[in-house]
Design a binder for these strands. Structure first.
Lengths: 258, 258
DNA sequence: GAACTAATGTTGTCCTACAACCATACATGT
DNA sequence: ACATGTATGGTTGTAGGACAACATTAGTTC
């Protein structure tokens, strides 16, 4: 068509709204400079005049702080800094997830978890949960035969294992991590599909895991999961890095700092 | 003073603001019912009339969704559901952290991580990081001799180990988990301080960990950390459960559902 | 001293208004 | 026919005013 090379850009968001900037400023004030926990923030009106914005903007910023659990507002009294930070969530900044190195850091996190998860699953799985795991394993082949690379089913397989631990936090944590390594898994599995030897390797590793969970052999399950993680990171490392640079979901461009 | 027994209640927040409820409703709509990623939400005005609230309330709710990464707003165009949920953080609802069981679930999460963290720390620690770990270990005794139970220094000890992995996510995840198990650790260490045998047990376990990290013996480090985790959960289990019911930070009361 | 009351300040909610911006349809010129 | 400019309506971003609900404090009364 046109003489342009492919020029598909998601959307440059270099516009930060006032509420964004006020939020950031307040977080900085609370975290760095000591607004001691329990103290009251200045009133919304005074902050509005101090920041030079309207009260609407201040309220939106405080609304975000509230949902992040940093502050708590009491009608008629004021906004107070919360003590303890139980409500501040664990997050990984997607803006730094551009390099392969940072993806591998997340993979390392998953690697650390998967061994214990599989061991606990072996110890505690019910018959129904074992059946669900086995079913998920079969679904990988189904997805591959249907022309896919099998990422969705692969993730579901490990999700079922996490479910079998009986501890819901394991499931939500690895689901959180999958969001970041999904694209890496996709290219990895895409590469494996061109190498029958590697594909067979993966299938074998999965089988060993299921076998150990089936027999409720805790140590074997742990070892199998660790072996699988080592194998997949080895396979991932054998891919040409440039394949990883295209990120299919989310932003690719890190907004310039200014 | 009064005839009442101690009745110090932080503050009952059973009043959920309109923005709270609208936020919850929108999250539900996005997650359960499919607002497909990429689709536009109804305009703020129409949502306001639909929910029967003012546009201000809608804006505050959407502001929270934005900070949670669920949606993205484009001026002049609308609010769009984000594709991929890389930005949705990992959180543990503090309102369900009332029972011992749920605390132990978080401890189990930490248990799973600490083994790998210590192993990686043994593998990669620099000389300076080893020194920091050893210093933190000494600080536990200092804190205890100063009359404290040693929780702060204990946490700092494990924090330094996590730092030595070189993977920043380990540190932030462990720090996140510590927020939930801190109070449990406090009562545990308080109990240990009345039992010299247990206190010595803890010190021995810590020493073995540091020794393995010092020698860069990866497998020994993993084993030592796992042994320490097993020991501390065993010691925690030997405490009378009622000691755990008093939670010093945050809410204790789970708001009634209505 | 205890209980009630008024005053003041703060957050919660609603409203209107306008600026900045986007998407589309329409008009214009070549 | 095509590209370019322009008008228009709709949407978010921001400002500001108004009042209700509530908390705190000072003052008053008993």
């Amino acid at each position: 068509m046109s003489s342009f090379p492919e020029f598909k850009v998601e959307r440059l968001i270099l516009t930060s709204s006032l509420a964004d900037r006020v939020t950031e400023a307040l977080i900085q004030l609370i975290k760095e400079n000591d607004f001691q926990p329990g103290t009251r923030l200045p009133s919304e009106i005074s902050m509005a005049s101090r920041f030079g914005v309207s009260r609407t903007v201040i309220r939106e910023a405080i609304s975000r702080l509230k949902s992040d659990g940093l502050v708590e507002s009491r009608q008629g009294s004021g906004v107070f800094v919360r003590e303890g930070n139980m409500n501040t969530p664990f997050r990984i900044d997607p803006n730094v997830m551009d390099s392969i190195h940072s993806i591998q850091q997340v993979i390392e996190l998953r690697k650390a978890l998967e061994g214990e998860i599989t061991a606990l699953a072996a110890e505690r799985r019910s018959k129904a949960q074992l059946a669900a795991i086995k079913h998920a394993l079969k679904q990988i082949d189904v997805e591959v035969r249907a022309g896919g690379v099998g990422t969705v089913a692969d993730i579901m397989f490990h999700r079922r294992i996490a479910e079998a631990t009986g501890n819901p936090h394991f499931l939500s944590l690895i689901e959180f991590l999958f969001n970041f390594i999904q694209s890496a898994m996709q290219t990895a599995r895409g590469y494996e599909s061109t190498r029958p030897d590697l594909a067979q390797e993966v299938k074998d590793e999965h089988l060993i895991i299921v076998d150990a969970i089936s027999k409720q052999d805790v140590e074997a399950a742990r070892a199998a999961a660790r072996h699988h993680m080592d194998g997949s990171s080895k396979r991932l490392g054998s891919i040409n890095p440039q394949n990883l640079s295209k990120n299919d979901s989310g932003l690719v461009f890190k907004p310039a700092c200014f």
